[in-house]
Simulated scan of single mutants.
Amino acid sequence: MGQAAHTEAWSVADAKARLSELLETAASNGPQTISRRGRPVAVVVSVEEWERRKRRQGTLAEFLATAPVGDEDLVVERVKGGRVREVDL
């Protein structure tokens, strides 16, 4: 690459004009943010990064069993005399 890799957000115009460089930078340096009018609107990641991040790790039950709940135990109480909402299925 002729220019230094972006570490900040790419503008939409830069991303469009230099798409190949954006893709190479995402592959070699990690996720790249694209911004419009100074606000982030998208992130470009390599396929390898995407596959790694979307992989499911464990079950919901495992997550809940190991999730921190803070200093206090979670106590769930049902309101006595509360109405049960009917739901059409």
Results as ranks from 00 to 15, higher is better:
1 M>I: 14
1 M>H: 15
2 G>N: 12
2 G>R: 11
2 G>P: 05
3 Q>P: 06
5 A>Q: 01
6 H>V: 02
7 T>N: 12
7 T>H: 12
8 E>Q: 12
8 E>V: 02
9 A>L: 00
10 W>Q: 00
10 W>M: 03
10 W>S: 07
11 S>A: 07
11 S>V: 05
13 A>E: 06
13 A>Y: 01
14 D>M: 04
15 A>I: 02
15 A>E: 02
17 A>S: 13
17 A>M: 04
17 A>E: 01
17 A>W: 02
18 R>I: 00
18 R>A: 10
18 R>V: 01
20 S>E: 14
20 S>H: 13
20 S>A: 13
20 S>K: 12
22 L>T: 01
22 L>S: 03
23 L>I: 13
23 L>H: 04
24 E>G: 06
24 E>K: 06
26 A>D: 01
26 A>N: 05
26 A>K: 03
27 A>N: 10
27 A>R: 09
27 A>D: 09
27 A>K: 09
27 A>W: 02
28 S>D: 14
28 S>V: 13
29 N>K: 15
29 N>A: 14
31 P>A: 13
31 P>V: 10
32 Q>C: 04
34 I>C: 04
35 S>I: 05
36 R>M: 07
36 R>N: 05
38 G>K: 00
38 G>W: 04
39 R>F: 02
40 P>F: 02
40 P>H: 02
41 V>D: 01
41 V>Y: 04
42 A>C: 11
43 V>W: 10
44 V>R: 01
44 V>C: 00
44 V>T: 04
44 V>M: 03
44 V>H: 02
45 V>A: 14
46 S>M: 08
46 S>Y: 06
46 S>D: 01
48 E>M: 08
48 E>S: 11
50 W>T: 14
50 W>L: 15
51 E>G: 08
52 R>L: 08
52 R>F: 09
53 R>N: 14
53 R>S: 11
53 R>T: 10
55 R>M: 12
56 R>T: 06
57 Q>A: 11
57 Q>P: 02
59 T>I: 11
60 L>S: 11
60 L>W: 13
60 L>V: 15
61 A>E: 15
61 A>Y: 14
62 E>W: 06
64 L>M: 15
64 L>Y: 13
64 L>N: 14
65 A>I: 05
65 A>R: 12
66 T>K: 15
66 T>L: 15
67 A>R: 08
69 V>H: 07
70 G>K: 00
70 G>T: 00
72 E>G: 07
72 E>H: 13
73 D>G: 05
73 D>F: 04
73 D>Y: 07
74 L>R: 09
74 L>S: 05
74 L>A: 10
76 V>F: 05
76 V>W: 01
77 E>I: 02
78 R>L: 11
78 R>V: 08
78 R>N: 08
78 R>C: 07
78 R>S: 08
81 G>I: 02
81 G>H: 03
81 G>S: 07
81 G>V: 06
82 G>Q: 08
82 G>C: 03
83 R>M: 11
83 R>S: 07
83 R>F: 08
84 V>T: 13
84 V>A: 12
84 V>L: 13
84 V>G: 07
85 R>W: 01
86 E>A: 10
86 E>M: 06
86 E>Y: 07
87 V>Y: 12
87 V>F: 13
87 V>I: 14
88 D>A: 04
88 D>F: 04
88 D>C: 03
89 L>Y: 07
